[in-house]
Design a protein around this nucleic acid. Sequence first.
RNA 1: GCUCCGUUGGUCAAAUGGUUAAGACACCACACUUUCUAUGUGGAAUUAAGGGUUCAAUUCCCUUACGGAGUACCA
Length: 505
Amino acid sequence: MSQHVRVRFAPSPTGPLHIGGVRTALFNYLFAKKHGGTFILRIEDTDQNRYVPGAEQYIVDSLDWCAIPFDEGPGREGDFGPYRQSERKDKYYAFAKALLASGNAYYAFDTAEKLTFHRKDHEAKGKTFIYNWHNRLKLDNSLSLSEDDVQKRIDNGEDYVIRFKAPQDETLHLQDEIRGDIQIDTNILDDKVLFKSDGMPTYHLANIVDDHLMKITHVIRGEEWLPSLALHVLLYRALGWDVPKFAHLPLILKPIGKGKLSKRDGDKLGFPVFPLQWEDPKTNETSSGYREDGYLPEAVINMLAFLGWNPGTEQEIFSLQELIDAFDLTRVNKAGAKFDPEKTKWFQQHYLQKADNAFIAKEFMGLLSQKSIVTTTEYVEKVVALIKERAVFISDLWNLGSYFFQAPSAYDEKAAKKGWKEHTGDIMKEVITVIDQVKVFDSKSLQEAVKGWITSNELGFGKVMQPLRLSLVGAMQGPDVFDIAITIGKEETIHRIQKAIDHLS
RNA sequence: GCUCCGUUGGUCAAAUGGUUAAGACACCACACUUUCUAUGUGGAAUUAAGGGUUCAAUUCCCUUACGGAGUACCA
């Protein structure tokens, strides 16, 4: 790539950033970094009606949490700002004017009501109303009206929009980096509005103007934009600009059922659809986020990278740097991918196992202090080392290992019934004595003492080991019993056995 | 409806004009921990259908079916 790569992620701040949006951002980021390029965040807020406070900050926070920060954007000014379209308002009109002057665009006065009427009317007849070559001369615009009329209406302050005049009888050959050649007959295109009556450009105009002004080399966006590609290319052509390369990413679909992944799927199936928790300022409704649910950003990124892309090797675990090195647009899939929450958990579990015990312990300490448990970092690290392999999330650690911090207050009924028999109490009394006599209280000595005692008394392991576990844990789970005993200490071990004898015998 | 895009196990997916059509998740079984996980081993399961082209098609072409997106003065 000879020119400096510049890509952009251009969301509109209409709510929290959806996981599909995060993936689009990720692929842009990976592509930029792979080619030593620049990753830009541009806020597309040309529709003032849909503006949601906090949404922009949410987008910025999400990208930062995912560790895919943008190089240029709001608050990180480069040479191409501002990066909010609402702040670039004055830039667009000149280009709409230029299009008007070159005959590629025209004024249109048709009211929204009238257009709605046409659409309904056509629909009733089983047809589709398209504002384009076959009817534009019959509608209320500068193509059908005299120059004087047009001027008069504008001078009178009448509302108008500027529409693109789509060319006729042409077959366009569009290039997509993922899909290859796409042919479009220009006669099916409609004359899209470029400039709205409120003085703001539409997405289409603002988008290509900014991409040009910001020297964007590659437009990597969701497949929902594919139908607009012809318009955009035509716009570049009409303005006499170089066309960037385009790549349309496959959509992320619902895990079950039909259609695009939506906010509701997450609620229904119990997994987050957003990177960060979001509270809707209007409804006060809270949507869960990956961060708050305990996912590590590395896991989310790794999972997202594999949705619609793969390296063609058997490697599945990738660090961000490895993703950058391996990423290739041509290896992006064409078909939409169903989202799999289970696989996300698998990635999460993997990254948690890989995470540093000190880090996990630190996070876990926060949870413990919420439960008013006083302990030491050293002790928590020991516990983490013993139980983390059973955990997917840090929050699992409590259910997995609460007995390291407090004696069981109840005993699993099934296990007690199965493991605690009539003579168990007597046996356990003897076990206390055996344990008490162990001088060096480490796993090896303890194990030798207890197992030796079992063997020489011909008791059978199950008769001792199971009640012992039940005494210490309260249930039939957890790591090696001797490790548990060593960790909680001799005194506590004996104390718990005695307690179990009192309760269960 | 129309336009465009797509279709390999339940899901994510690799590969090639000639292979036993990888691998992962999930599922099942077994082993290992005298517990629960984790792990290991194995199993079941796929080229949407029908036509061509070809010695040979999952791969190239066509049709059908199915899925998706778009069809706004929203992005």
